[in-house]
Amino acid sequence: MEWVRFTFAAIFLIFAAVMESIAVFGVYKFKFVMNRMHAAAIGDTLGLMLGAVGLIILKGLSWFSLKMVIVVVFLWMTSAISSHVIMRMEYSIDEEAVNEETEKMQTGGTQ
């Protein structure tokens, strides 16, 4: 039983690590702001949830796991919404960047 629990927790934690590394990779790889924000939001939401679920499985059901669930709920509300706000700011302020990107696409994407 212990081993089964440990295996499940390890799988979840490894997936969380993979998601976070994908997020970091995406933030540095993508060129356009909104793509980057999308990559960062992956780490904020999916990676966080997988890590929390892994820890809950590892620890078993207790007050600790309830606290972890509350942490996940709060971070899902706040981090996703902060990404949304930054995105809207970018959309409403930075017209030049958007125009440049569309021009690049129209001309065939020479960097």
Binding site: K29, F32, E101, T102, M105
Partner: peptide, 15 residues
């Protein structure tokens, strides 16, 4: 591949 390299957007409006 173009999307990953930042050359093309799926989501943006195209005239």
């Amino acid at each position: 591949e173009n999307f990953v390299n930042g050359k093309e957007e799926f989501l943006l409006y195209k005239p």
